[in-house]
Write a protein that binds this DNA or RNA. Structure first.
Length: 883
RNA sequence: AGGCACGUAGCUCAGUGGGAGAGCACUACCCUGACACGGUAGGGGUCAAGAGUUCAACUCUCUUCGUGCCUACCA
């Protein structure tokens, strides 16, 4: 016998190990079964599992386990990415604790240290995914820095370079002075800050007058090389001078005219710092201005900053402002809000900085990626994200892919020390491709981590080799991801996949929600509202946690996570456990289910319902309506299987009917329980496997079972609407009597006497055949059934379609209560009828509404009238009794 | 600045051009031989506000208010 309540811990460990041993997660390279593949969004190797991962991977696992049950050959490709900046940060911190740093170690030794770190800590998140139940094909686990994937990266770089799609140049880029590297535009997060707008007078070169410029970053003025005004601006049409003198520095700045300048902003005069502002950089290029870099890569002022050299950029701002004040050139200083970029890794203020970097020309790649979604080769679900995808793709800018760190794929480019030509190649070249010199120096920069992640769907499958894995599983079936990396990752995979594989990387992209805290705030370490998935798993079990995530994963809506909710679904797990406990107490051995046509009504009903529900769940999962799938299953298990079927079947199982029925019922109960476990398995893999294996006659994993409906046998294909509706009638009557019991305050311990008048012959027949159900579920001591007859005098009345149910109230009862109950019932009914009859009295409705709608309304109205009449008759009778 | 989503029961959320739903919470009764992590019954909503389209609007359109999020080079 099963324990009284479900204890997840031992069960989870045991089954996960079993699945791995039995190689049940492994994909077949070749198979006649349909291929289904997903590549995992590779978590950072430095990462620990957070709620976002938990949701993301639960959904993927649901899909993978579901497809396996449907008979597909499933590949769920796992792995991690090397997270260049993040990992380097972690290891550098560790070195600092040890009193050293990477420069003292040197590049080679440092890389070794990172690999050592990865060996020791890099599988933390993988182990956490296993606790979540993730059924990844672990033997194929990949890492973006693996030999194979690195070769793919090099190949892609070389090919893009040869095609002219990669170039190097001096441009203004986002620079993180703390990480000491360039960042892509996407890696900069904007945040509104309270700052100041400083109005600074730049005296005319002639000495008389001058211009006032407005800036939020006065320290950059040291690098100004011009002042710009709008060509249309009348104020500056006929200036008596052509140049101004840069305060604190003394450099003469030309006054240039450019459309970019907004006349309405500030004074309409804009200082131009090509080395430290992206717009100024463009303007500088247009006007051939010099660039003066006054802030170094370390965030310290360079010697170009004159007397401010060596100052930190923030200290320098203060010093510049003070100096300007002293010279009387600071005209105004007003509070000002403006967006400032921060490094997405370390939150340091980004410095737009002039530097030499490598870029990918994205426009041509983006065009193909746009077309693929336009033509439906890749679908984005939910569709709302399609627009976001297009917007970004159509406004895409070149992608800065070089990073000034050590941990990553070193760019395969060599500069010749003799002729300065660049050689790009797969293998380390011996000689300069231009002049033949052997004095080659490799580029020290590494590539953006996302550059390698962009190749993930095919690099993990062995590309550039033409592997059978690629043939079988590329394009992948679906990518499951959060919208936060739609651009970072999804868009780039689309571009690279289409360019190198000539085929989209995935047919579907399912974009899921964010997991927030119960107040709806984003979980973050700094807010202290992070819930650790592993804590939840330990407290409530993996299955309850997974079910919670799935049940709340409605399309387009964020999930507010709280322990309370998980607790609710733990109750569901316990309910399942106890349903199994009960069932298994009554099933001694495996029994074949008889031909459904010969079975009893409740058996036919539950089989038919189970099959219908299986179909609904399949449909929901096929369309990524995860929450619907979970909801349908929950409802069926709890409120049909447990509340009704098990209750109905108890007398049979306790041997109160006959042996043959008992065996038949045991067979059906066992069958439905097993099928429920299969339906449950994608969501709650552990408990379903545990219970499955307790079923008599079962050997081996539930993972090898077939989804209901797929076996195409007579039981799985059994649908019986007539039994469904007949059972519904019986349940209605039971509920009706229970309602009387509850409302009238009749104790559950008191068996009741019920008289039913059913003028519907079929219903009467059905009730006569199943009077045992009514007696047991409504707790009756006597039940009389007839077409008609004398109405019992002292009774409460329930009216259902085709029958009137009298619950006898002889003796103990307060009849005014029954009067009130009937009045309430009639009141409800009258309200509904009012709306309906108004409709039916409306000429336009009768004329314009579709006939079937009108007919439905008429039928309904008729039933209501009948019901109302019956209720009123009985109300009058009750009132007479009271009087 | 532009764009996108969301406002439905006390809370968290499903839902749809023709009968307002679930879970939790709440109330009453019940230790009924699977389960008190349970059972039975019950109360509770002008579906944010206003206008329009329609025979019919919670659902479609517009406006307003409120709440989130994303994108953007305005110094």
């Amino acid at each position: 016998m099963l324990e009284k309540s479900y204890d997840p811990h031992a069960v989870e460990k045991r089954w996960y190990a079993f699945w791995e041993e039995e190689e049940l997660f492994e994909a077949k390279e070749k198979s006649s079964a349909p291929a289904y593949s997903i590549v995992i969004p590779p978590p950072n190797v430095t990462g620990v599992l957070h709620m976002g991962h938990a949701l993301n991977n639960t959904l993927q696992d649901v899909l993978c386990r579901y497809r396996r049950l449907r008979g597909d050959n499933v590949l769920w490709m796992p792995g991690t990415d090397h997270a260049g900046i993040a990992t380097q940060n972690v290891v550098e911190k560790k070195l600092a604790e040890e009193g050293t740093d990477r420069h003292r170690l040197g590049r080679e030794k440092f890389i070794e240290a990172v690999w050592a770190w990865r060996k020791k800590y890099g599988s933390a998140i993988i182990n956490q995914l296993k606790r979540l139940g993730a059924s990844c094909d672990w033997k194929r686990e990949r890492f973006t820095m693996d030999e194979g994937l690195s070769r793919a990266v090099r190949k892609v770089f070389v090919e893009l370079y040869r095609e002219g799609m990669i170039y190097r140049g001096d441009y203004i880029i986002n620079w993180c002075p703390r990480c000491r590297t360039a960042l892509a535009d996407l890696e900069v997060e904007h945040e509104v800050h309270e700052g100041h707008l400083y109005h600074v007078r730049y005296p005319a070169e002639t000495g008389e007058g001058g211009l006032v410029v407005a800036t939020t970053r006065p320290e950059t003025m040291l690098g100004d090389t011009a002042v710009a005004v709008n060509p249309e601006d009348e104020r500056y049409q006929n200036l008596p001078f052509a140049a101004v003198r840069l305060p604190l520095v003394g450099r003469i700045l030309p006054i240039i005219k450019d459309d970019y300048v907004d006349r309405a902003f500030g004074t309409g005069a804009l200082k131009i710092t090509p080395a430290h502002d992206p717009n100024d950089f463009d303007i500088g290029a247009r006007h051939n201005l010099a660039s003066v870099k006054v802030i170094g890569d370390d965030g310290i002022m360079t010697k170009e900053a004159g007397r401010f050299v060596g100052m930190d950029r923030f200290a320098c701002r203060k010093a510049v402002v003070e100096a300007l004040k002293k010279e009387g050139l600071l005209e105004k200083m007003e509070p000002y809000q403006h967006g400032i970029g921060h490094c997405y890794r370390c939150r340091t203020l980004i410095e737009p900085n002039l530097s030499r970097q490598w870029f990918v020309r994205t426009k041509p790649l983006a065009e193909k990626a746009i077309a693929a979604v336009e033509t439906g080769k890749t679908r984005i679900i939910p569709e709302v994200w399609t627009k976001t995808y297009f917007d970004w793709m159509r406004n895409i800018k070149d992608w800065c892919i070089s990073r000034q760190i050590w941990w990553g794929h070193q760019i395969p480019a060599w500069t010749c020390a003799s002729c300065e030509e660049v050689t790009v190649s797969m293998e380390t070249p011996a000689k300069c491709s231009s002049c033949g010199s052997d004095r080659l120096v490799q580029e020290t920069d590494v590539l953006d981590t996302w550059f390698s992640s962009a190749l993930w769907p095919f690099s993990t499958m062995g590309w550039p080799e033409e592997t059978s894995l690629l043939k079988t599983f590329y394009p992948t079936s679906v990518l499951v991801t959060g919208f936060d990396i739609l651009f970072f990752w999804v868009a780039r995979m689309m571009m690279m996949g289409l360019h190198f594989m000539k085929e989209v990387p995935f047919h579907d992209v399912y974009v899921h929600a964010l997991v927030r805290d119960e107040m709806g705030k984003k979980m973050s370490k700094s807010s202290g509202n992070v819930i650790d998935p592993i804590d939840i798993i330990e407290q409530y079990g993996t299955d309850a946690f997974r079910f919670t995530l799935v049940a709340f994963a409605a399309q387009g809506r964020d999930i507010k996570m709280s322990e309370k909710r998980v607790e609710g679904y733990r109750h569901f797990m316990n309910k399942l456990w106890n349903a199994a406990r009960f069932s298994l107490m009554h099933i001694e051995k495996e029994l074949p289910v008889s031909d459904p046509e010969t079975l009893s009504l409740p058996d036919r009903w539950i089989l038919s319902r189970k099959n219908r529900v299986a179909g609904e769940i399949a449909e929901a999962l096929d369309t990524y309506r995860f929450n619907d799938a979970a909801g349908i299953l929950y409802q069926f298990v709890w409120h049909e299987f447990c509340d009704w079927y098990i209750e109905i079947v108890k007398p049979v199982l306790y041997g109160k009917v006959n042996e043959k029925k008992k065996l038949e019922t045991q067979a059906v109960l066992g069958h439905v329980l097993g099928e429920v476990m299969i339906l449950l398995h994608p969501f709650a893999p552990f408990i379903s496997e545990e219970i499955w294996n307790k079923l008599p006659g079962v050997t081996g994993s539930i993972m090898k079972a077939r989804f209901p409906g797929d076996s195409k046998d007579s039981i799985d294909g059994f649908f019986d609407p007539s039994s469904e509706s007949r059972m519904m009638r019986i349940m209605e009557i039971v509920s009706g009597v229970r309602n009387v019991r509850g409302e009238m305050g009749l104790p559950p311990s008191m068996p009741l006497e019920v008289v039913i008048h059913a003028n519907d012959a079929e219903l009467l027949d059905s009730l006569q055949n199943h009077r045992d159900i009514l007696v047991s579920l409504a707790k009756l001591k006597e039940l009389s059934l007839s077409v008609d007859g004398p109405k019992p005098k002292m009774a409460a009345t329930t009216v259902v379609d085709g029958a009137t149910v009298f619950t006898l109230l002889k003796g103990v009862i307060d009849f005014s209560k029954e009067g009130q109950r009937l009045e309430k019932e009639i009141g409800k009914l009258t309200g509904e009828m009012g709306i309906l009859s108004a409709k039916l009295n409306n000429e336009d409705f009768l004329r314009k509404a579709p006939p079937e709608i009108v007919k439905k309304a008429e039928e309904k109205h008729e039933l209501m009238v009948e019901r109302q009449q019956k209720l009123e008759t009985n109300l009058r009778r009750i009132q007479e009794i009271i009087r």
